Amino acid sequence: MLADPTRLMILWVLLRREANVTTMSQLVDAAPSAISQHLNQTAPGRPRLQPPRSAASSPRPPPTPSTSPAR
């Protein structure tokens, strides 16, 4: 997870100061979208803004009808 040089530079910046994605992209010389993706990789326990592709591409199963006893 930390073997990527860009990810290491992002973490180095964050250890020294608080920075938003735009500032980090300028300091690290990477696109803001790349910074965002790296941040998502370093925080696996945090909620994602978008569901993983596998969950987003598969439709939800239809609800099962409840079987209540007839009165």
Rank of each mutant, 00 (worst) to 15 (best):
A55Y: 10
P32M: 01
I10W: 03
M9F: 06
A34M: 03
Q50V: 15
T6N: 07
D4S: 11
R48G: 01
P69D: 02
P65H: 11
P69N: 02
L8Q: 15
H38Q: 13
L14F: 02
P52Y: 02
M9Y: 06
S33F: 04
S57A: 14
T64G: 04
P52W: 01
P63T: 09
P59C: 01
E18D: 13
L2R: 12
D4A: 10
R53D: 14
T6V: 15
Q41N: 05
P61E: 12
S54M: 12
V28T: 00
S54C: 10
S58P: 00
T22I: 13
P63E: 07
L15K: 14
S58Y: 08
Q50C: 11
S57H: 06
L2G: 09
Q50F: 14
A43I: 00
A30C: 09
S36V: 00
L15F: 09
P51H: 05
S25R: 04
M1A: 07
V21I: 15
A19N: 05
L49Y: 10
Q37V: 06
T64D: 10
M9K: 15
Q50L: 15
P44R: 01
M24D: 04
Q26R: 15
S36A: 14
A30Y: 02
Q26D: 04
R16I: 05
W12A: 14
R7M: 12
P69E: 04
M24C: 06
D29T: 03
Q41P: 00
P44Q: 00
D4M: 04
A30M: 04
T22Y: 12
M1T: 01
P65W: 07
T22D: 13
A31Q: 09
P52E: 12
P65Y: 06
H38Y: 02
R17K: 13
A70R: 12
H38A: 15
R53A: 15
P5D: 10
D4T: 01
A55R: 14
R71E: 07
E18W: 09
P59Q: 04
D4Q: 07
A43R: 03
T64V: 14
A34N: 07
P61G: 11
Q37G: 11
A31F: 03
P62R: 13
L14A: 07
P5K: 10
M1C: 01
P62V: 10
H38I: 02
R60F: 05
P65K: 11
P59V: 05
T22H: 12
R71G: 09
R71I: 03
L39V: 05
N40D: 08
A3P: 06
E18H: 11
A19W: 04
S68W: 06
D29C: 05
V13N: 02
R17M: 10
P63M: 08
A3V: 10
L2N: 09
R46A: 13
V21C: 09
Q26L: 11
L2S: 11
P65F: 03
M1Y: 04
R17Q: 15
L49P: 07
P51E: 11
S58T: 15
L2D: 11
P5M: 01
R60W: 05
S58D: 08
L14W: 04
S58K: 14
I10S: 00
P65N: 05
E18K: 11
S54N: 13
P44L: 00
T23Y: 04
R7N: 08
P59E: 05
P69Y: 02
L14Y: 02
A34C: 07
P51S: 12
S58H: 12
W12I: 06
R16N: 11
G45M: 02
A55D: 13
